[in-house]
Design a protein around this nucleic acid. Sequence first.
DNA 1: GGGGTCATGTAATAGGTTACATGATTCT
DNA 2: AGAATCATGTAACCTATTACATGACCCC
Lengths: 196, 196
Amino acid sequence: MVKRRKVGNPLALAVLAWLVLEPMHPYELGRRLKESEQDRNIKYNRGSLYMVVKQLAKAGFIAEQETVRDTQRPERTVYALTEEGRTELYDWLSELVAQPRHEYPHFGVALSLMVVLSPDETVRLLGTRLTALAGEIDEIRGRVDAATAQGVEWVFLVEERYRAALLDAEHRFVAELIEAMRHPDYIRKWQEMLGS
Amino acid sequence: MVKRRKVGNPLALAVLAWLVLEPMHPYELGRRLKESEQDRNIKYNRGSLYMVVKQLAKAGFIAEQETVRDTQRPERTVYALTEEGRTELYDWLSELVAQPRHEYPHFGVALSLMVVLSPDETVRLLGTRLTALAGEIDEIRGRVDAATAQGVEWVFLVEERYRAALLDAEHRFVAELIEAMRHPDYIRKWQEMLGS
DNA sequence: GGGGTCATGTAATAGGTTACATGATTCT
DNA sequence: AGAATCATGTAACCTATTACATGACCCC
């Protein structure tokens, strides 16, 4: 049910979204992405940005509007959103909001292969993860509080709160996991498996 | 602090992990990946597999052991884990367990751009996500229960439980978000923002 | 014995990241 | 005036995915 997009990179969605406001040149797009810290949710690097912009132009979602050279800096090509682009933006964003997608979190990989490590080693490693997780959660909370104090509306912080919610859940999960693996039953089972 | 690996694709880690058991040819690796349903946690397709195997061989983590043709099927090249490969496996897997990595979940992208949608539309979309999430959670629970009934050890189900934990947290988050956006304050603020 | 599908792999293409290049401004 | 850093983009290089190819086995 997930539509195959002509341009699939999330960075492209951000480009469309920013161009709703006004036409811009790629560098400016990049600047705003970083300034608004959206690069925390969307993988950003300049190379990909220019690539994505080219793809969007080819797909007809944005169009070259003019090429200016106001100061003596390199020429900058200003792009504007097309009607198709606007449609694509709403369609894509709606899908992303409405339909959960299968994710491949790094820790999932780790968990699925964890059996190759010994139980006590695993417990040790999970311990350091646990404290790291606590640290990240704190950091996000701090970031959100600071922004709120600055008067930033909560809509602009909602993804950070989402992140915190996920990390929180993971923290609880890891804590429980550690408990379970400390139990002698687990160790015994593990040894039996190796024996067979 | 996250080490830059010679081969970074998680699929490669799975290959190393399976080769700990015994030497195998790529097709067999693929078969086991699917059979053990690890392709739910690790993106798998045959093309990538052969690529990754080549990369691992070049990096010296696995070595071509023999080329057999037992039945009249195409030749199969059997690979074995090298000492360096074993080291890399433990090192990499340990890192993955101990250190949380920054993730870019699809929904995070959606949330960070959500402002471009109208509040009531957003609430509607979030509603359908909510039910979809509930469905997925059920499906996973079912899957875990069925496997447990079959006598599968819980270590082999731990990633599914992780997945469920995350989805659960997201479910709660979305439910709260819907509540918040239904509140007239939010709508007013949103309209003010557009006005400015 | 002809039609599916299993087993196995390669090649073509598209997608993304890193590295490089270059003039402008700003700082000391 | 030289060093650092900003602004801007292109090109080279990897990585990953899709499409193609081909013989064997299995079913009716």
